[in-house]
Design a protein around this nucleic acid. Sequence first.
RNA 1: GGAGUGGUAGUUCAGUUGGUUAGAAUGCUGCCCUGUCACGGCAGAGGUCGCGGGUUCGAGUCCCGUCCACUCCGCCA
Length: 592
Amino acid sequence: MRSHYCGQLNTSLLDQKVELCGWVHRRRDHGGVIFIDLRDRAGLAQIVFDPDRPEPFSIADTVRNEYVVRITGQVRHRPEGTVNRDLATGEVEVLGHSIEILNRAKTPPFQLDDENVADDTRLRYRYIDLRRPQMQDNIRLRARVAKILRNFLDDHGFLEIETPMLTKATPEGARDYLVPSRTHPGAFFALPQSPQLFKQLLMMSGMDRYYQIVRCFRDEDLRADRQPEFTQLDIETSFMDEKQITAIMEEMFIKLFKDAINVNLPSPVPRMTYADAVHRFGTDHPDLCNPLELTEVSDLMKQVEFKVFSGPANMTNGRVAAMRVPKGGELTRKQIDDYTAYVANFGAKGLAYIKVNDAGKGREGLQSPILKFLPDEVIAELLKRSRAETGDLIFFGADKAKIVNDSLGALRNQIASDLTLLTSQWQPVWITDFPMFEYNEEERRWDSLHHPFTAPRVTDPAEVEADPGKCLSRAYDLVLNGTELGGGSVRIHTPEMQRTVLRLLGMGAEEAEEKFGFLINALDYGCPPHGGIAFGLDRMIMLMSGAPSIRDVIAFPKTQTANCPLTSAPAPASLKQLRELGIRLAKPGKTE
RNA sequence: GGAGUGGUAGUUCAGUUGGUUAGAAUGCUGCCCUGUCACGGCAGAGGUCGCGGGUUCGAGUCCCGUCCACUCCGCCA
């Protein structure tokens, strides 16, 4: 049916007869001559129809945008002065000998070159949206990324192994998607949030190295970078420690970025401890393209008369931090007010600031409502630590450490974006030395920071129990430009440690047995030391393509309320289906 | 669960202090046009102003409720 792709035409094919199939991208009718831009997966080609061939000319006269046609014709050089440098195939054109309409098309609901179409319209007609070259590029990039990753892992001895989609609900973590069992009325499968336990079991099975590009499901609210079903590159290995695992993953990423988008990531990828990241950037996934940094001033503010500062400075879990914005003195009052409202989203009660009008003049060179509360020596030290210069502005956060970190961390991103402070480089960083646990004030117990199967640094369960808050884990996250690409850890591989950790998380022996008995049993039958990592493939491709939303790199994504405008899923189930499953709805009437 | 922004022609948007016939661009249809490539010219069609209620002599505009989309908080081990 087709001899070439439209986008492949070039001067090497001059005078050749070609057959092309594709969509009418645009038709330009000059009365005496008709141009058709024909589009397929590979690109555009211009077809010319002359009136001295009346039959194809009259057919070309009737086609409209998005008609699917097959044309035959002869490749020729475009006449002098009509070469289109903007088009890959712009040196040549095809003189149309015949044109066959394979299918007509209604007028599309939006123009393919309109880059400003509402998301729900795009999703309702996703099959048209996906015809756009930008979307085709994203999908192609996705396929290329998957291929490079598979090749790399295969070359390094990893086996691609599938794990169940119908599995058991996990007690912690995200909300599960449930699937009712017909053969066990009243019982439910859960769709996997990740294949975590299965991949560990595969290590216990002696598979040694596993990977899988696998769909995962979490029934939580959506974001620009979060879908309820998403794809992970899931990896696990035996007999490797965190150094070896991160080293091989780093090698994989450097190759991926080079081969897929010709970007040279730094080698080695820098490393930063969790504590450092939180102190300097207020987050465990800092964007290192962003030059702004937090300055610790808690110790300076313990004695000051300003209670807003001295209060948190003296609290055990409080923090006072400063963030210097270079040239921030130019910010208007309204901008500062907007930032104050912005940090309120994160629980901050206010946003104090000092304008540095003249850094050399000490107190006299500064301007701020809070100046009168601060002694000279505090001011001097503050200017020194933050390296303030004339024309800068210094913001302050003072509250519980979490609120200070969240608000200044978010403000840091916002300001960098507003003032275009971001360097356009690629900045990966490994975050290491995570705490094992964080204390859950509401439920008054410890929560895993990573997950309950992450190994602690220490090997003696008694040491973990002695002071869980001080305990560091063997987890690591890979962060790229402020986005958490993935994370993993060396796992617990002894039943004693696993029982201890589950107990610390508030799980009784019986409950642990019921929920994770199969895992703990398996640990008893010869479990190798093992560890692994999982990467969010969608986010990875979103970053690599520069797409603003994860939806732009998923062929058929969901909206923010997790429905699909194309298929209208989810939809009510029929009474018959429900009856077979032994399910009665609490609110009747919502069936078909 | 919460905050914000938006919903008006197929699409993207404008619509003043509530006031006569709701506009623009683009797309679409027809006619004209032999070198365009966002072709051009002329003419034309196209609207439950998201939905429901209320205030008013009168509502796209004000109020209440509701639905949808997006961004964010919570949530996402």
